[in-house]
């Protein structure tokens, strides 16, 4: 007994050491793939021109009377994320009921639903955007569709967790007094879940506004398109103003959405 106590307490220590050493080895192996050879060629010149551009953003680009400017790009980004969130907030409701365990008696139904949602969730939105660009042509609409479909994966998962957490009292009361399935849904389930649904949709909106800024990198509209042009032409002062615009837009949206979410719940 006396001997087994120290060996018992030493075991996790040894295990931690092994895990730690393994992690360090994996880390070194990963670092070995990173080849750092880019910056020497241009050297300090590139860094200084980037610094120059970022400290002197191209303020003229904020508003141009004719055509593409920062404000219009940001507005398009905002619109893409509003519409994408709107589409997914409705499309995901049937998926949510499919995936929640307490809405169907057969377990396989909810498990299959959860699997479908996982697959949608891990399918990158950039790839979805490319597929929709082939279907409807490049532009903001492809971005809207990509966000709308991709967001279903996460929103439906959060929605289904909400549905699984509803209080069963009202449901049972309605069922025992002879309500139909639809009536149970309308008067017992929906009133409990709607505020949470709206809150999650707003949260997803915050994520979507970030995603919408990169959709343009593959040609699906928004501020990413001019950003890509500015980056490839090394117009650093324009890159600076666009990044500044994105930071401001995302911060404002976060503040508004956070305030709304606190009010709803």
């Amino acid at each position: 007994m006396n001997q087994s106590v120290p060996s018992h307490s030493r075991l996790p220590l040894i295990r931690n050491w092994i895990v730690g050493i393994l992690l360090i080895l994996i880390f070194i192996w990963s670092l070995s793939a990173m080849k750092f050879d880019g910056i020497q060629e241009y050297g300090a010149q590139v860094v200084s021109s980037i610094w120059e551009g970022f400290t002197h953003p191209d303020w003229d680009y904020v508003y141009l009377p004719d055509g593409e400017d920062l404000l219009r790009g940001l507005l398009e980004t905002l619109i893409i994320s509003i519409l994408g969130t709107f589409i997914s907030a409705f499309l995901c409701i049937p998926f949510a009921f499919w995936a929640s365990a307490n809405m169907s008696r057969i377990q396989a139904v909810s498990i299959s639903g959860k699997f479908v949602l996982t697959v949608i969730r891990v399918f990158p939105e950039i790839i979805m955007a490319i597929l929709f660009i082939v279907a409807v042509g490049p532009g903001a609409f492809a971005g809207v569709l990509a966000l709308g479909i991709h967001s279903i994966g996460m929103l439906a998962k959060l929605y289904s967790e909400t549905i699984e957490a509803v209080d069963n009292g009202p449901r049972e009361a309605l069922i025992s007094s002879g309500a139909s399935k639809l009536q149970v849904l309308r008067f017992a389930v929906l009133p409990q879940v709607i505020p949470q649904f709206i809150s999650y949709a707003l949260y997803r909106f915050e994520i979507n506004i970030r995603s919408a800024t990169v959709l343009g990198l593959v040609g699906a509209g928004g501020i990413g398109v001019p950003l890509l042009f500015a980056l490839s032409s090394r117009n650093w002062s324009r890159v600076g103003i666009i990044l500044l615009g994105i930071v401001i837009l995302v911060t404002i949206i976060d503040l508004i959405s956070g305030w709304l979410r606190r009010r709803i719940i």
Binding site: F36, D37, G38, I39, V46, V47, I50, I126, R210, S211, T213, V214, L217, G224, L227, L228, L231, S232, R234, V239, L243, I246, V247, V250, T251, D254
Partner: peptide, 17 residues
């Protein structure tokens, strides 16, 4: 506030592909 792909796009421009 800056998504990972934007960081990547900027760093590619600085450090190369």
């Amino acid at each position: 506030t800056i998504p990972d792909l934007l960081f990547a796009a900027v760093f590619v421009a600085v450090f190369g592909i």
